[in-house]
Protein backbone atom coordinates (compact mmCIF):
# COMPACT_ATOMS: atom_id res chain seq x y z
CA UNK A 1 0.00 0.00 0.00
CA UNK A 2 1.42 3.47 -0.83
CA UNK A 3 2.90 5.16 2.19
CA UNK A 4 0.83 8.28 1.52
CA UNK A 5 -2.31 6.27 2.18
CA UNK A 6 -1.13 5.27 5.61
CA UNK A 7 0.23 8.60 6.76
CA UNK A 8 -2.21 10.99 5.16
CA UNK A 9 -5.41 9.58 3.75
CA UNK A 10 -6.01 12.12 1.01
CA UNK A 11 -2.79 14.04 0.38
CA UNK A 12 -4.02 15.63 -2.84
CA UNK A 13 -7.59 16.15 -1.83
CA UNK A 14 -9.13 19.33 -3.19
CA UNK A 15 -12.38 20.53 -1.78
CA UNK A 16 -14.63 22.70 -3.89
CA UNK A 17 -18.23 23.60 -3.09
CA UNK A 18 -18.69 20.49 -1.01
CA UNK A 19 -17.43 18.16 -3.71
CA UNK A 20 -14.42 16.01 -2.94
CA UNK A 21 -12.01 15.43 -5.78
CA UNK A 22 -9.37 12.74 -5.79
CA UNK A 23 -6.39 12.60 -8.03
CA UNK A 24 -5.90 9.38 -9.91
CA UNK A 25 -2.77 8.64 -7.87
CA UNK A 26 -4.84 8.39 -4.73
CA UNK A 27 -6.81 5.52 -6.21
CA UNK A 28 -3.73 3.62 -7.31
CA UNK A 29 -3.97 1.32 -4.31
CA UNK A 30 -7.34 0.12 -5.55
CA UNK A 31 -5.88 -1.24 -8.73
CA UNK A 32 -2.67 -2.70 -7.43
CA UNK A 33 -2.65 -6.33 -8.38
CA UNK A 34 -1.76 -9.10 -5.96
CA UNK A 35 -0.13 -12.16 -7.48
CA UNK A 36 -1.20 -15.40 -5.84
CA UNK A 37 0.39 -18.77 -6.53
CA UNK A 38 -1.80 -21.87 -6.43
CA UNK A 39 -0.45 -25.42 -6.37
CA UNK A 40 -3.13 -27.97 -7.20
CA UNK A 41 -3.43 -31.44 -5.75
CA UNK A 42 -1.92 -32.75 -9.00
CA UNK A 43 1.09 -30.45 -8.45
CA UNK A 44 0.23 -27.97 -11.20
CA UNK A 45 1.33 -24.41 -10.41
CA UNK A 46 -0.87 -21.52 -11.43
CA UNK A 47 -0.02 -17.87 -10.84
CA UNK A 48 -3.10 -15.65 -10.89
CA UNK A 49 -3.59 -12.01 -10.08
CA UNK A 50 -6.40 -9.76 -9.02
CA UNK A 51 -6.91 -6.44 -7.28
CA UNK A 52 -10.09 -7.23 -5.35
CA UNK A 53 -12.60 -9.92 -4.47
CA UNK A 54 -11.81 -13.08 -2.53
CA UNK A 55 -9.10 -15.63 -3.21
CA UNK A 56 -11.88 -18.20 -3.79
CA UNK A 57 -13.43 -16.04 -6.54
CA UNK A 58 -10.05 -15.63 -8.21
CA UNK A 59 -9.56 -19.40 -8.18
CA UNK A 60 -13.10 -20.22 -9.36
CA UNK A 61 -12.94 -17.73 -12.22
CA UNK A 62 -9.72 -19.31 -13.36
CA UNK A 63 -10.92 -22.89 -12.88
CA UNK A 64 -8.31 -23.89 -10.30
CA UNK A 65 -9.08 -27.60 -9.75
CA UNK A 66 -10.24 -28.38 -6.21
CA UNK A 67 -11.55 -24.91 -5.39
CA UNK A 68 -15.28 -24.98 -6.03
CA UNK A 69 -16.81 -22.33 -3.77
CA UNK A 70 -20.19 -24.01 -3.97
CA UNK A 71 -21.87 -21.76 -1.40
CA UNK A 72 -20.75 -18.62 -3.19
CA UNK A 73 -18.42 -17.46 -0.45
CA UNK A 74 -20.52 -17.38 2.73
CA UNK A 75 -18.39 -19.83 4.73
CA UNK A 76 -21.01 -22.57 4.52
CA UNK A 77 -19.48 -25.39 2.48
CA UNK A 78 -15.69 -25.67 2.94
CA UNK A 79 -15.18 -26.41 -0.78
CA UNK A 80 -12.46 -23.74 -1.10
CA UNK A 81 -9.97 -25.12 1.41
CA UNK A 82 -6.28 -24.22 0.94
CA UNK A 83 -3.05 -24.72 2.86
CA UNK A 84 -1.04 -21.54 3.12
CA UNK A 85 2.71 -21.95 2.66
CA UNK A 86 4.10 -21.70 6.24
CA UNK A 87 6.39 -18.78 5.32
CA UNK A 88 3.32 -16.84 4.11
CA UNK A 89 1.18 -17.48 7.21
CA UNK A 90 2.01 -14.08 8.71
CA UNK A 91 0.69 -12.40 5.57
CA UNK A 92 -2.62 -14.26 5.44
CA UNK A 93 -3.27 -14.38 9.16
CA UNK A 94 -5.20 -17.06 11.02
CA UNK A 95 -8.79 -18.10 10.25
CA UNK A 96 -11.73 -16.41 11.98
CA UNK A 97 -13.80 -18.29 14.58
CA UNK A 98 -16.42 -19.67 12.22
CA UNK A 99 -13.84 -20.52 9.58
CA UNK A 100 -11.82 -22.38 12.22
CA UNK A 101 -14.93 -24.34 13.21
CA UNK A 102 -15.55 -25.26 9.57
CA UNK A 103 -12.01 -26.62 9.30
CA UNK A 104 -11.51 -28.42 12.60
CA UNK A 105 -12.96 -31.79 11.61
CA UNK A 106 -11.75 -31.72 8.02
CA UNK A 107 -9.44 -34.69 7.48
CA UNK A 108 -7.27 -32.56 5.20
CA UNK A 109 -6.90 -29.70 7.66
CA UNK A 110 -3.48 -28.57 8.85
CA UNK A 111 -2.27 -25.77 11.10
CA UNK A 112 -2.00 -23.66 7.93
CA UNK A 113 -5.53 -24.26 6.66
CA UNK A 114 -7.75 -21.43 5.46
CA UNK A 115 -11.02 -21.20 3.54
CA UNK A 116 -10.13 -19.05 0.57
CA UNK A 117 -13.58 -17.43 0.44
CA UNK A 118 -12.66 -15.72 3.72
CA UNK A 119 -9.41 -14.28 2.32
CA UNK A 120 -9.87 -10.85 0.76
CA UNK A 121 -7.40 -9.95 -1.94
CA UNK A 122 -5.21 -6.97 -1.19
CA UNK A 123 -1.58 -6.24 -1.83
CA UNK A 124 -0.93 -7.78 1.61
CA UNK A 125 -1.39 -11.14 -0.10
CA UNK A 126 0.94 -10.38 -2.99
CA UNK A 127 3.29 -13.29 -3.65
CA UNK A 128 1.76 -15.87 -1.30
CA UNK A 129 1.58 -19.55 -2.21
CA UNK A 130 -1.49 -21.67 -1.51
CA UNK A 131 -1.77 -25.43 -1.84
CA UNK A 132 -5.25 -26.62 -2.78
CA UNK A 133 -6.40 -29.05 -0.09
CA UNK A 134 -8.81 -31.21 -2.10
Amino acid sequence: MPQSWCTNRFPDKKEQSGTVYFFVNDLKFLTEMAKINFITKAGVEMQLEAASGSVMELAVNNSVPGIDGDCGGVCSCATCHVHVAPEDWAQTGAPGDMEKDMLEFDDNASEFSRLSCQMSISDELDGITLKVAN
Binding site: M98, D101, E104, F105
Partner: peptide, 11 residues
Protein backbone atom coordinates in the same frame (compact mmCIF):
# COMPACT_ATOMS: atom_id res chain seq x y z
CA UNK B 1 -24.56 -20.54 14.56
CA UNK B 2 -22.55 -23.67 15.15
CA UNK B 3 -20.33 -24.59 12.21
CA UNK B 4 -18.40 -26.99 14.42
CA UNK B 5 -21.47 -29.13 15.13
CA UNK B 6 -22.40 -29.05 11.45
CA UNK B 7 -18.97 -30.20 10.30
CA UNK B 8 -18.78 -32.83 13.01
CA UNK B 9 -22.23 -34.09 12.03
CA UNK B 10 -21.17 -34.23 8.39
CA UNK B 11 -18.03 -36.20 9.28
Amino acid sequence: NHARAYMLGMK
